[in-house]
Design a protein around this nucleic acid. Sequence first.
DNA 1: CTGTCGCATGTAGCATGCTACATGCAGCAT
DNA 2: ATGCTGCATGTAGCATGCTACATGCGACAG
Lengths: 260, 260
Amino acid sequence: MSRDRAPVALGPLTGPAESLADQAVAAIRAAVRDGTLQAGQLYSAYQVAGYLGVSRSPVREALMRLAEAGMVRFERNRGFRIVVPGAADIAEVFQLRLLLEVPAARRAAARPPAGLAAGLSAELEQMRAAARRPDERLFMQHDQRLHRLILEAAGNARLAALVDSLRDATRTLGASTAGRSRGLADIAAEHAPVIEGIAAGDPAAAGRAMSRHIARTGRLLVAQATAAGRPPGSLGASPAGGPDNGADLWAAADLQAARK
Amino acid sequence: MSRDRAPVALGPLTGPAESLADQAVAAIRAAVRDGTLQAGQLYSAYQVAGYLGVSRSPVREALMRLAEAGMVRFERNRGFRIVVPGAADIAEVFQLRLLLEVPAARRAAARPPAGLAAGLSAELEQMRAAARRPDERLFMQHDQRLHRLILEAAGNARLAALVDSLRDATRTLGASTAGRSRGLADIAAEHAPVIEGIAAGDPAAAGRAMSRHIARTGRLLVAQATAAGRPPGSLGASPAGGPDNGADLWAAADLQAARK
DNA sequence: CTGTCGCATGTAGCATGCTACATGCAGCAT
DNA sequence: ATGCTGCATGTAGCATGCTACATGCGACAG
């Protein structure tokens, strides 16, 4: 090493921490949120590329990632479509979220990192504020952040990433549920006992509360999808499924059995 | 509709059910299994494309999917590397498998589809046969099939796909554990109580057996990765992790708590 | 002998060209 | 009128061209 040289401490620049494909993913997610890309409608990677001012490659890559998450679906030589998850899809996603997020909440309560409870309370407060406006987009944003804090506290990065991916599959549902805005405050309230359980270091309570919250949300969305059928005319991919669709989120029942 | 025409019933050809990218994924997985692509070594999409006789596009796509599963890692402007999972990675994967496969086993036992028990027994027999040879590759193949049968029986397609993806991340470990071939019969034996539990329609027993099996495997691999350090000189990406690495697969302990 | 620099080499990432194919619609036979 | 057929249109998927950059190595200054 050289002798005298001003020691410079610079972040390694992180490189292009955000490749065009990453940006495209974010842009498409945003476009779906605000309705620029409507669910059920057929689009092409061509137009999206032009719309974003980049070539088709990164757009295609972004779409493929989202397709793997179940948010979009490719139709060979036709285009791609924003997927409206059917009741069966919603049930699957929420079954998985139960399996993953409930233990995460327990873990977070058992070994809460410093400052976790404070961060959670802050997010909850933001959710309540957003519910009062009401601003559903903002609400969902803080909801996601709250859940993410818990998942990260569980200390398993893959778990957090997985749940993020699962949320993508049901992302179209949040914005499309008009008239449900009245329930935002209720949804926020469901998070309170989770936070209390974590703050109190009570894994069982935190897990129970999280289980209730997710199961309730899942049941509501499944029922909504089942009842509404296909209101606008979009076709929700409902592969198989059968009549006992969702099986009332068997994981919830499964957890009950395990807790016996 | 026309009047008289022989009604022909042909499968819709499934289209190119196997795109080049899909084939590339399979080929790369196989190459990793049989050592054509060595873990820790640096390769490029260029050479793989030539090796497979296709262009870089589908190869890149395949690599990106595998990267998302954690099997390979891209290094900007350098190439890609078959990831040797560190102890922390292994712990994460097996935590998740516990969270997902244990409930799946319970569900399969609670609602066993027709013929499931028979199929499971057949796979187990194949595993035993492979253990006697011993043929580790064949063994692992039937092991995966057995697990997949259970996951599919749980009736959640995403769950099955997820676990498949998780297996990719630890795929390099199976073939590299020389001298462990003696334990193949033991591993096969661990599956027996799972099958019995499912056949008997006893969810609790099936779940317990599956939990033991996965936790044991995970602990073994974590210990192996921790002890061996880095034998050949390959660098296993061990981001953070700390000393309490793996935390003995907290999910296992978490399940104990839940079963209280 | 040691540390630094410049260059050749090779890659990921992005842009763009090319092909087979799925669909919609007009024209035609019936 | 009605159902089939051929073609124009537009897309996914694959192949290929292009650029910035990360690294290894050898020349060279100190």
